Simulated assay, not measured.
Amino acid sequence: MDKKKKFARLRALNRQRNYLMKSLRLHIARLILDHRTKREFAISDRKSVLFLRDDDKIGDMVVSTSLFREFKRAGYVVDVLAGKNNAKIIEFNPYVNKYYVVEKDNKHKLEQAKALAKNNYDVVIDMGDKISPFHLLLLKKLDARNVVGFNKAGFNIYNKSLDYLGYSSHVTERYQLLMESFDFISFSTDYDIHVPDSVRSEIHDFMSAIAAPYKVVINPYAADPRRDMSLTQLKALIEKIKREWDQVEIILVGDPARISQLTHLDAVINPYHTLTSACEIVRLADMVISPDTAIVHIAAAWKKPLVSLYGNDLHGEYVNSRVWGPGYDAARQLYTIDKHHPVSSIEVDDIILTMKELSVLCCCRTQ
């Protein structure tokens, strides 16, 4: 056996061992922490709910906003356990009664869960797919009357488990299933972002001061480097947009620390460092271009004309580009050749062609 094959075999054995150890720890935790039998599912007259969105993913929080609105409209008091960053999406959301930012370390998380248990929630809705011994302990500490999750039928602490294996279906179908399980009849899965009037006024003045009547917002960066646009790709895209259309200005949004390094490009750098400001800039844009990241879902909240750049990858068994795609008619997706190619491999000419198909800027075309 050559060295490469031997190394690959050792890695495979190590992965198998780690999987078995995780399974064993979860089995032991289940014996200790899980309920012996499933409890009856029953909601009190108070109808209070805590959503667990503590993964701190901004895009996931945007997608979840439809649930907060529809549960509130159905008479529920809606609280959310959020992360430090994704809490900013619901900071001004009128449908959320309270949001709590999850503590950093496990000891304080459990203390926080014990404190939240005093709210006597009718139901905790676990938005995630994975479960761990610590997660079981967290749910135990929250001590809600009911716990709802997806694909958790093997755990009695969940007295409502929704079977959902939509590996290539948009995530809104999962949330539709959730609302139907609560007997909601008339509801919408549209996203719901709220920006305070002071920010709207400030961004309106900023956008109005840009002389070009048409604004294209580009977000070049994502959390995963493989989803980032390259500097070469971004520079070429900006130059081709300016050659193809007149009366167009480019506005770059994203991580302030990263886009502040792009002042040499022929584009306006978003000078505001808040997430709500970026949301409002997207709302006022004529078109948005972004790799697979939160800006895609923020654009979807207002059904903005969108060119989104996706890799051919999976999240577990879920087809990422379908489950977490923009999911509306005014959006287009461009894909890498395969999972081994980064988003920076997508051709600039293909992005330009897709922009033309959307035809939002046709009235200012120079050619």
Rank of each mutant, 00 (worst) to 15 (best):
V102F: 00
S132D: 08
L139C: 10
G83L: 07
L136A: 11
L110T: 03
V78S: 04
M127H: 07
K98Y: 08
N86I: 06
N86D: 11
L110V: 11
L139G: 10
S132P: 00
I90C: 05
N120A: 10
A113K: 04
Y121L: 07
Y100F: 15
S132N: 08
R145G: 15
D122I: 03
A144P: 06
G75Q: 06
F71D: 06
F92I: 00
Y76R: 11
V124W: 03
K118A: 14
V124N: 03
N146P: 09
A87S: 15
L81I: 02
I131F: 02
G75W: 02
L137N: 14
F92N: 14
D79F: 04
H108N: 14
K130F: 13
P94E: 06
M127F: 11
K114Y: 03
I125C: 04
P94I: 07
P94N: 08
L81Q: 09
D143T: 03
E111Y: 13
E103K: 13
M127R: 13
Q112C: 06
D129M: 08
Y121D: 00
K107I: 13
K72C: 12
R69P: 00
K130C: 02
D143V: 00
D143E: 04
V148Y: 00
D105H: 13
I89Q: 11
R73G: 04
L138K: 11
Q112T: 12
E91L: 08
N85D: 12
V147R: 12
N119D: 05
V147K: 14
E70D: 07
N85R: 15
Q112K: 11
E111V: 13
K107R: 12
Y100N: 10
R145K: 15
L116N: 07
